[in-house]
Amino acid sequence: MGEPRSLVELTIDGNVVKVPEGSTILDACRREEIDTPTLCWASNLTPVNVCRVCVVEVEGSRVLVPSCSRPVEPGMVVSTDSERVRTSRRMVYELLASSVEMDRADASVHAWMDNYGVRPERMGDREEIATVTQPPKVQDELYVRDYERCILCYKCVQACGDDAQHTYAIATAGRGFDAHISTESDVALPDSACVYCGNCIGVCPTGALVFRTEFDMRADGTWDEDSQEVTTTVCAFCGVGCNLELHVQDNSIVKVTSPADHSVTNGHLCIKGRFGWQHAQS
């Protein structure tokens, strides 16, 4: 639908490219197959540009700009791999990895960290510097919130709020390094407005929010992502037609997600679609 958009011409890493008006620099980079790291960006969420790992250098701009949210402009000259860009990206990863457990972050995160030669240990002895180390919150049978893995990318807040679920059970509380994702007065999740749609878990990039099944299986040492098969089907719990991705390990469903590019769900589900699968294995 809609009118075809006119094209904007800009230069990225020395190459002249044309992209539709309204594209972001990140969109343009992806079209040009220039690999760009992201943490807080997701295709099904509004860019909040808080992680700053996607920054690029734009000629005429005093500071680096977040490619995920900056629209392209005619004549823009963009560098994605300058020394300044590499330093800032490396530092963002070093700052995060020095304060947060990154071990369960997506594989691409680790690939980028290797690529930029990240050495978080130079921030100081982990026992002596500020970190977000804390025990996981296990408050019900469906969710685990393991906030020592939280990089504060705001994705969960967006998925719980304006970008999908509109439940607003969680928000950022506190300030500065003490800022954290919280329910009101940190009440337990079952006492909050949470309706267990699992959309926060669906968008978490670092394993801070996990399904209880995964958390328990990891604790037991039985979680084996490599052996899991993913089958796409349609949820049975109402007539809306949400696509489900069933993650199956040893003929058991262990996790349910939805494709972010599915026009019905945009990757988001409700409690029934997300968790109502136990009857398939009883």
Partner: peptide
Amino acid sequence: YNTGVQSGKFASPI
């Protein structure tokens, strides 16, 4: 969901 045949099987906190 409906008579709970399917949905009654998971531990819903709500």
